[in-house]
């Protein structure tokens, strides 16, 4: 069996984001990292491979810098890497889904894992969109996945408790925060990763005709600045503070 994990490189959650000309200024991002939910997808993909055998391929669609993320994935045990090199900054979700679906077909993967949403766009459409294009079962927001007979069992939290969903392949799981610790690479893995070659292709190589973008992003804007804190002194201000905590902050 071939398992694919879809990874996206995003600004690190600690990186400062600058907006210029109505767009996030990518050149100002000091550190790029794998989107955190994708890291859980990767961890469970590794566990599936360890439990059931097979090949694990990491796929990304993004600019040249994204290849570092694939090498990092190889260092923790991914067998092969496919990089669809593309400037995704002006692509819409459906275009990226087409590319990823074609990349998955190219690798022959029938079990696909990805994050529930990317930490930069928070769109949450990639997983379901790719599953739809592939005709695969889609189980969203899972926190764990394992092998169950010929199929797979995923667990997710719902309002009344935990739900377990069993599906057969082809199937796609989108990951919420997982229930396990993420693994760290080791020196052996890092040295192995150096020897693994990243297959680098374009959307055209995969036979994807992107067409026109159906969704256009008007502009990005930084979140409004937080209003300054309020300061109260002396015992006489207690009623005011209590009132504010009750009515404005809703904490008491």
């Amino acid at each position: 069996m071939t398992i694919a994990v879809l990874l996206k490189q995003v600004p690190d959650t600690t990186a400062k984001i600058a907006v210029s000309g109505g767009r996030v200024d990518q050149s100002s991002v000091a550190k790029w990292s794998t989107s955190p939910y994708d890291e859980y997808a990767l961890e469970y993909a590794l566990q599936l491979k360890e439990a059931g055998g097979g090949d694990l391929v990491a796929i990304t669609c993004g600019p040249a810098r994204s290849s570092k993320m694939l090498t990092d994935a190889a260092a923790v045990g991914v067998d092969s890497m496919l990089h669809v090199v593309a400037d995704t900054s002006e692509m819409d979700s459906t275009q990226i889904q087409s590319i990823l679906a074609a990349a998955i077909k190219h690798c022959g993967a029938e079990i696909i894992l990805c994050g529930k949403q990317a930490a930069d766009t928070n769109s949450g459409s990639t997983g379901p969109g790719v599953a739809s294009l592939l005709g695969a079962s889609c189980v969203g927001m899972v926190s764990e996945v394992g092998i169950e007979g010929d199929g797979f069992i995923a667990q997710r939290g719902i309002s009344s408790g935990d739900e377990r969903v069993v599906v057969s392949k082809p199937c796609l799981f989108t990951f919420d925060k997982g229930l396990t610790e993420l693994r760290r690479p080791n020196v052996k893995g890092i040295m192995m990763a150096k020897k693994k070659v990243i297959e680098s292709v374009s959307a055209g190589d995969l036979g994807v005709d992107l067409g026109e973008s159906g969704v256009k992003i008007n502009s990005h804007a930084p979140p409004p600045e937080k209003p300054p804190g309020q300061k109260f002194e002396g015992a006489e201000s207690v009623p005011t503070v209590v009132a504010k905590l009750r009515e404005e902050a809703n904490v008491i």
Binding site: K68, T71, D72, R184, P185, N186, V187, I190, M191
Partner: peptide
């Protein structure tokens, strides 16, 4: 690249 990966691993 390998040395930087080792750095990131230990830093983590």
């Amino acid at each position: 690249d390998e040395e930087r990966m080792v750095r990131d691993m230990v830093r983590d």
